[in-house]
Amino acid sequence: MDWIATLLQGLLLGGVYALFAIGLSLVFGVMRLVNIAHGDMIVLAGFVSFAVVEVLGLGPILSLAIVLPLFFAFGYVLQLAVLNRTLGDDLLPPMIVTFGLAIVIQNGLLQSFAADSRKLSLGEVETASIALGTDIAVGVYPLIIFATAIVTILALQALFYGTKIGREFRATSDDPEAARLMGINTKRVFAVATGVALVVIGIAGVLMAIRTTFDPLSGPVRLLFAFEAVIIGGLGNIWGTLLGGVTLGLAQAIGGAIDPQFQVMAGHLVFLAILIVRPRGFFPKVAH
């Protein structure tokens, strides 16, 4: 029954990677922007939550009430003041600006929190598990993360297909110039999209900070996992992103079962293999 446990573990790990990847997918989907600071923003959310917990004495879940609005504002202002000015035909500016942001966040965190590893604590929930049959159990907390990933996707789906701003997201993503001709303020639309993406990043960052330790330099690895999940799933397809996350999680879990040293490598290799077989991912967005 060992392999069932491994697969379950991989599936749940996939929820984590999907949660990482949704924000990246969203920003790419709406404005064709690849945020290299994505992983560092996830880590930043962990540290902000850590600070809120330390200073105000709130629990990590309650800290979301502060982290999420803060991150929405951060994303909105960042897009309006900085990133909007980099969008255009030239791919270099958005790449360098988000890379620069990554360096600033990493080293800013190093300066303010030192290089120590941190972890947020949620008490018993972290170690609780549900028994499935006689010798298989799943952790409650990984289940919560997986459920959060699905709820987040459903919520984004509702936002995109059920609201006015969602319609503007899709129209702007299709054809920004035509959107402007319809009276849509695309700069504001982009700012809201990045704000929403940062809310998702905030959720991912805080939940992850409860699950494992983090330090100021753990961002890049999270970016790479998120990136791999997005590419495996197919660019700009949010359910594909979930599948990409699960694929990556399964690959890592199976690799880790073979040899613990091999866990991360297995994920990367499966990503590269999928790149060879299906360079556009499982569910590429229809070209238009």
Binding site: R167, R170, A171, D174, D175, A178
Partner: peptide, 8 residues
């Protein structure tokens, strides 16, 4: 060229 939004 009409420029309709394909996702809408």
């Amino acid at each position: 060229g009409r420029r309709l939004f394909p996702s809408l």
